[in-house]
């Protein structure tokens, strides 16, 4: 497979780029900003500053990950009584009640996935400049999973939002969203941005990629 890949001529090599909006193939001058002659959209060979942006978003999401887990995500008040729960303490509570499958789902969707996403992105970014044990194929697949599964972490936020809106039985039961929910939502959005700002084509760029980076 590798041989085939090496044989592929890329658009970049030919100085061509596709308009991201109207998909017009245009010839570009990599030194300058290029615009689509048809739709006037910005045309670029690779996502502009993809690596930098991805780094920045990923770092942001890592920062947001801390309050998301440190602060209580919601408080369930029965008759005015209730204890605020963070994501992890909620999972512990679920385990205590013996609801293992739900605990597993929540743990994976709300903790493992966001964390894995952040770690994965860091790994991908790192691997661009350093040799990696993983092949380009494996890393591309990894990126795809990060992009696909990452958004499901938002489930937690939806659940909290729905519960807060729906469960409001006067003084009997009340659910109050905690600051952790906000942080968590922010974190998930940041990881989505981070994943989107990563241009997987960079993984396939040849040695020149290094020189390209250096040009920036």
């Amino acid at each position: 497979m590798d041989t085939n890949v090496e044989a592929i001529i890329t658009a970049k090599e030919k100085g061509l780029a596709q308009c991201p909006v109207c998909h017009l193939l245009v010839e570009i001058d990599n030194a300058k900003d290029n615009y689509c002659p048809r739709c006037d959209s910005k045309v670029y060979l690779r996502i502009n500053d993809s690596i930098q942006r991805c780094w920045a978003w990923t770092i942001c999401s890592l920062i947001a990950f801390i309050p998301a887990n440190a602060f209580p995500i919601m408080t369930i008040l029965y008759f005015g009584k209730g204890q605020p729960d963070t994501i992890l303490s909620g999972i512990v509570l679920l385990l205590k009640f013996g609801m293992y499958p739900i605990a597993a789902i929540v743990f994976i969707a709300s903790f493992v996935v966001p964390l894995a996403k952040i770690v994965g992105l860091f790994f991908l970014l790192y691997s661009l400049k350093n040799t990696s044990k993983l092949s380009k194929h494996q890393r591309t697949k990894m990126y795809r999973y990060i992009e696909i599964f990452g958004r499901w972490s938002m489930l937690d936020v939806f659940v909290v939002a729905l519960l807060v809106a729906l469960v409001e039985i006067g003084a009997v039961v009340e659910i109050v969203a905690g600051p952790g929910a906000t942080a968590f939502g922010v974190m998930v959005i940041l990881t989505i941005f981070a994943a989107n700002s990563f241009d997987p084509r960079l993984l396939w760029d040849r040695e020149t990629s290094n020189s390209m980076e250096q040009e920036r």
Partner: peptide
């Protein structure tokens, strides 16, 4: 496939 020259402007 038609190749056209992209409009070029300076990069920030």
């Amino acid at each position: 496939m038609t190749e056209q020259q992209a409009v070029i402007s300076n990069k920030s």
